[in-house]
Design a protein around this nucleic acid. Sequence first.
DNA 1: ATGTAC
Length: 478
Amino acid sequence: MNMNLLERIDDYTWTIPLKVGEKRSGIRLYGSEPLLKSMDDKVLEQITNVATLPGLVGEAMTMPDAHWGYGFPIGGVAAFDAEEGGIISAGGVGFDISCGIRCLRTNLMREDLTSTDLTKLADELSRAIPAGVGREGKLRLTLDELDDVLRGGAQWAIHHGYGLGEDLSFVEEMGKMQGARPENISRLAKERQLGEVGTLGSGNHYLEVQEVAKIYDEKAAEAFGIKKGQIVVSIHCGSRALGHQIGTEYLVSLAKAATRLGISLPDRELACAPIHSPEGQEYIGAMNAAINCAMANRQVLTHMTRNAFECLFKGVKIETLYDVSHNTCKEETHLVNGVERNLWVHRKGATRAFGPGHPDIPVRYRSVGQPVIIGGSMGTGSYILAGTKEGEERAFSSASHGAGRAMSRHQALKLWKGKQVIQELAQKGILIRSASMRGVAEEAPDAYKDVDLVAQATEKAGLARRVAFLRPKVCIKG
DNA sequence: ATGTAC
């Protein structure tokens, strides 16, 4: 990014000064100077576009891991007030609606796993977890059953034997998003999903077995039930074909609504409609149903993970640490200049990060803040952080979500071969199992930004504080 | 992200 276009507020907070005659809201970019320097100029252009949207409250923001996306940047946060003409945008949620990460803690320690165990575990997980583009899973649902999934979310999965009731306390919204309207979703979107509940997908989605390699905050780690050397599992996936199809279809309907209502869009990809409009309401109902689809998906995968571990480690105990999405728009209460307001917060490639005391945090974690999961690239590691009070005011309680791509898939393919990436990671003791060698090359660790810098900048910017670093041991890729 | 390519 051309740093001359930015104005430094502090070491981790930047803005773009308003030009004379320019009409838009303010902008905040969070991150260290090196991270911002490495960002595409397109991020700046896109967040400037977002800042022109009607009903925006406060500032349009980017997280330290921001990169170019469809309309909105990935790593973009924007809150709108429905009573002031605020909008909802499909591009502001992302195509993979409710993509997110479920982290599980096991009662195994690193010393419990020999290298033979790890190989067996990698093989068993790659057998048990359906992964890859268009890959179908073990469940074959009817359209009526899928509607139940879309209304019930992770609660549907629990009621159908996929998991334990106690998981639900550690999933956003207790695993069931209210306001889901399956009737707002096309038959095509549903048909595409019938065989894909309980599947991982492709791209940057993964299931990783990791060890807790470093603890930054002992008190929070204790609350989260993790300690150094412990084995955890992270599942990164979303709403699969369903979310993508909804996004595709609603972009058209929202664009029409914007035209009809005279909302001027600097970029067609920002297609949006007022929250108080038929099209806006229709999309919100569909999006909420897709959120349930994603939470059900991660719940079914949790069940499959437990079964795979149980095959090798009889009596192993696996609990849900937390499940949090990073592609949503949610109605939340936020304090703005001392006034409590009801806002619709778009977080696209940004994780919700409620601070200590927030009523929507599980009681067990409430005093330390909501767990925030930053997923790394394949083979580099991930972080668990905790939401802060400061983050409420600075970013409507939002934080980073991952390392963020440093180069395009196309560029990555020119630089690496899948086989070579797998061999290099094996030398570091990381086992990869993937349906696609091409996918592995596209996801090479160096095609991503440095997750350590992202987590550090997230903390320094006051958005969330680091609790633990997770080092990968086994990675199942789509 | 995605039956990766209307």
